[in-house]
Design a protein around this nucleic acid. Structure first.
Lengths: 206, 206
DNA sequence: CCATTTACCTAACATACGTTAGTTAGGTGA
DNA sequence: TCACCTAACTAACGTATGTTAGGTAAATGG
C-alpha cells in the first residue's frame, strides 16, 4: 500500500507519470475517498499532471475505474493462489482455509490499493463498469468455491452448508473489515486468525 | 419496503407530499441507486414535486441524507430491541443471539428502506454527514455489545473472544448481505438461521 | 539531422448539480 | 371577509464535472 500522508507527487517530474502512475494514484484516491468524491482533476493533481492529460492514457473516467476494479480482483486472486500454492501437499483442510482467509485479508488491508479500492467503490460505480468487472470477479469466486468444495468433499466441512452461500458470507465478512480495521487495535494477521477461528469453530463455549 | 417497480408517484396528488413523503422516496432511491447517483431532482421527480420545493422541507441535501441515515439505524435498533424484548425470561444465550441476528437481517432485507439505505450509502456520503450519524450508531452498537457481553458472562460465549471485534465482524457480515441477497435463492429467515449456525458453531465437521 | 512519436499542456464547452429568490394557489383561523 | 400559512411553483445562478480540440517540448530512431 502506497504512502498515504501526502496527496501530491514530487513537483518536478524527473520521468513521465505514465498510465501506471495515473492508475496507482487513482486506486489510492478511490480507496481513501470513494468513487463520487474523486474527480479526474483530483486524480490529475495528485499525479502531478493536468486533467486533460489523462485522456492521453485513458479514453474516459470509466476506463480508469474499470482498470482499477479489474486489477483489484487480480491482486487479491493472485494473493490467494500464491498462499495456497506454497502449502505442503499434506496440508489439512483447516490450514488451507486459514491460508486463504489470510491472503484475502492481507491483500485488502496491507498490500493492494487496488483491491481495497475495488471493495470500497464497486457499489458506487455505474452499472456498465460493474458489469465489466464481473468476469474477473467470477474467476476469483470460482477459486473460492473450488477450495471450499474440496474441503467439503474431504469431510472437513459440514455436508449441509451451501458452498456458494458460505463463500458469500465469508468474503462479505472479510471485505466489511475495510470499514473498521485499525492496525492500532491489532494486526491484520491476528484479525485473520480470529476470522478463521470464528468461521471454523464458532463462538459458543463447549 | 415500498413498491419498487415504478419510480414516480401518482400524477395527481390528492394530498401534499410532505416531509415524510420526500424522505420515504429518498430512502428508497438511495437504497436502490446509492448516494452519488441520486440527485435532488431525481428525488423530487420520484416524489412528484420540483427540486426547489424540497427546500421547503429541508435546508440542504445533506439534511435529507442525515435524516435517512438516522432513521435507518433507529429502525434496525428498534427491530432488535423488540425481538429481544418478546423473548421469555428463561431464553437461552443461543436463542437470544439468533433472535438478534434475525431482527437485524429482517430490518435490512425486508422491512426498512431506511436501514438498507444507511448500509448502502454510509461510506459514500460526506464526512460531516457520517459524523452526524455516529451517535445513533453508537447507541445501536452499545446494545449489541451489551447483549454479547451478557452471553459471555453467562459462560455461553468463549471467554477469549473480544466483544467489540466480534460485533464488528458479525454486523459487518450481516450488512454485506445487502449486496448479494436474492429472495429467490432462499428467504431472509433461512439465511438468518445459516448466519447463526455459522457464527455459533462454525463450519467444521466434528 | 530531421521526421515522428510520446507525453504532456492551455483553453474551452456542455451538462448536471445544489441552491436561492421571488411567486402563487388553496386551505385555515380570527 | 380577509390576513396568514402551507406547500408548492418558475426561473435562474454559480460551480464542478467529464470531455474535446488544438498546441508544444522533449525524446526517439532511421
Amino acid at each position: 500500500m502506497a504512502d498515504t500522508t501526502v496527496s501530491k507527487v514530487s513537483d518536478t517530474p524527473r520521468t513521465s507519470v505514465g498510465r501506471d502512475g495515473v492508475l496507482n494514484v487513482a486506486a489510492r484516491l478511490f480507496r481513501e475517498q470513494g468513487y463520487g468524491a474523486v474527480s479526474l482533476r483530483k486524480i490529475a493533481e495528485a499525479a502531478g499532471i493536468k486533467a486533460s492529460s489523462i485522456y492521453y492514457h485513458f479514453g474516459s473516467k470509466d476506463e480508469i475505474v474499470a482498470a482499477v476494479l479489474d486489477a483489484g480482483i487480480e491482486a487479491v486472486h493472485e494473493s490467494m493462489r500464491q498462499a495456497i500454492a506454497v502449502l505442503p501437499t499434506d496440508t489439512g483442510a483447516e490450514a488451507a482455509l486459514r491460508a486463504a482467509i489470510g491472503a484475502h485479508l492481507r491483500a485488502l488491508l496491507e498490500v493492494s490499493d487496488y483491491s481495497s479500492a475495488n471493495v470500497r467503490i464497486f457499489g458506487q460505480v455505474p452499472q456498465s463498469v460493474r458489469d465489466a468487472n464481473l468476469p474477473t470477479r467470477r474467476a476469483y469466486e470460482a477459486e473460492w468455491d473450488a477450495l471450499l468444495s474440496r474441503l467439503q468433499k474431504n469431510g472437513a466441512l459440514q455436508r449441509d452448508v451451501d458452498i456458494r452461500r458460505l463463500r458469500l458470507m465469508l468474503i462479505g465478512a472479510l471485505n466489511a473489515t475495510l470499514e473498521w480495521f485499525d492496525p492500532d487495535r491489532g494486526s491484520a494477521e491476528a484479525l485473520s486468525r480470529t476470522y478463521a477461528d470464528v468461521f471454523l469453530n464458532g463462538i459458543l463455549e463447549r
